[in-house]
Amino acid sequence: MNNFSGALLKYLSKEQIEKIQKIKIGIAGCGGLGSNIANALVRSGFRDFEIIDHDAVEVSNLNRQNFYLDEIGLSKVEATTTRLIKINPDINIAAKKLYLDESNISLQFKDRDIIFEAFDSAESKKLFIETFGNSGKLLILGSGMAGISNKKPIAVRKIKDNIYIVGDEEADIEKGLPPLAPRVIACAAMMAGVALEQVLGQ
């Protein structure tokens, strides 16, 4: 155990930490949801990741994505890996700079226990659930986190034993609502929370 893992004992039991550390996580997309999901999971003790995103960090990402000014131009998966190692040096991240679509998505995440959907288009979210929906893996998807209003709050909906949708399922960036840090980060954190809850059997 390193300093970070040892310090987790202040809040989690040895048995809980061991359960968390055995889990293999996949994250499809490393933007608003993905970068913040990875942050919450690493801080919670998860340490085995496969993270896939084709994109590079741009300054307009910084309003909600877990990146910094000195990372602009770097690939998102590379920047995320470098930074999260600064929390827990023992994490293992398979970082893939790859554009996921119908031609290659089914080849990814084969040995993962939990896969997070962190894409930004509704069509990609549909592709994700149609690809992995019957795999038996725990799937956590995000839908509806744009805008400022919390009139319809971000919530967790279980649609199958192993599939959870997190979001308000309404607020759509395609309707002109901007993606902003409070709701995007809240949604990402709740998605990570679903994984923690399922792993620890709460």
Partner: peptide
């Protein structure tokens, strides 16, 4: 009835009384 059905076979997936469906319509953002 507990299985995700790919769009490619929606037309050939027959429905009968008592069937349970979940329909999720995604929105953009993430």
């Amino acid at each position: 009835n507990g299985k995700i059905i790919d769009q490619k076979i929606w037309r050939s997936s027959e429905l009968k009384t008592g069937d349970k469906l979940e329909i999720v319509t995604f929105v953009g953002g993430g």
